[in-house]
Write a protein that binds this DNA or RNA. Structure first.
Length: 150
DNA sequence: CGTGTTTGACCAGCGC
DNA sequence: GCGCTGGTCAAACACG
């Protein structure tokens, strides 16, 4: 849904005030994580070491929903799940399955509010949405965005 | 058969 | 230097 995409971007920009060199960040992200070779990634690339001064933009959404799987129109593949302290619920790590799209997102529930779900997006999509979500509008109208900064 | 999920192990960073 | 912790990978499995 184009509307949602524009909305998402706007919110992200608003939430991450320091997000000005978006292109640079994107390029670095793509260049760094693009190498899917395991050995290459481990041996050559030091993703965390490279981000010395640069912060990766992360956009956090807090939503009230019974289901933590909020489909925003993109296809996500789960690549990890870890338990966090101060939170008895595990955190799920998702990644966009589009080729060349390294956008990540993690979903975490709040212990206090089981109905509260924090969705943190990392990176920006540079490709059209694959999923035809006409029912997503319905979901959107149901969820409320509280904060966009992290 | 293609795609996504599960799950334990692995690695790098950080604190002590 | 050692151990903990968060984040990621990848083989096996499940599902249409």
């Amino acid at each position: 849904m184009e509307n949602f995409q524009g909305f998402l971007t706007t919110s992200s920009l608003l939430g991450y005030g320091e997000f000005q060199s978006g292109k640079g960040l994107m390029e670095e992200m793509e260049g760094g994580a693009e190498n899917k070779t395991f050995a290459g990634l481990l041996g050559t690339e030091k993703k965390k070491g490279d981000r010395k001064k640069i912060r990766k933009p992360r956009y956090a959404f807090q939503t009230r929903s019974k289901v933590d799987i909020l489909d925003d129109g993109y296809r996500w593949r789960k690549y990890g799940q870890k338990a966090v302290k101060n939170n008895k619920f595990p955190r799920s790590y998702y990644r966009c399955t589009h080729q060349g799209c390294n956008v990540k997102k993690q979903i975490q529930r709040l212990t206090i509010d089981e109905g509260m779900v924090v969705t943190t997006y990392e990176g920006m999509h540079s490709h059209p949405i694959q999923n035809s979500n006409d029912n997503f509008e319905h979901i959107l109208s149901q969820m409320q965005i509280y904060t966009t900064s992290f």
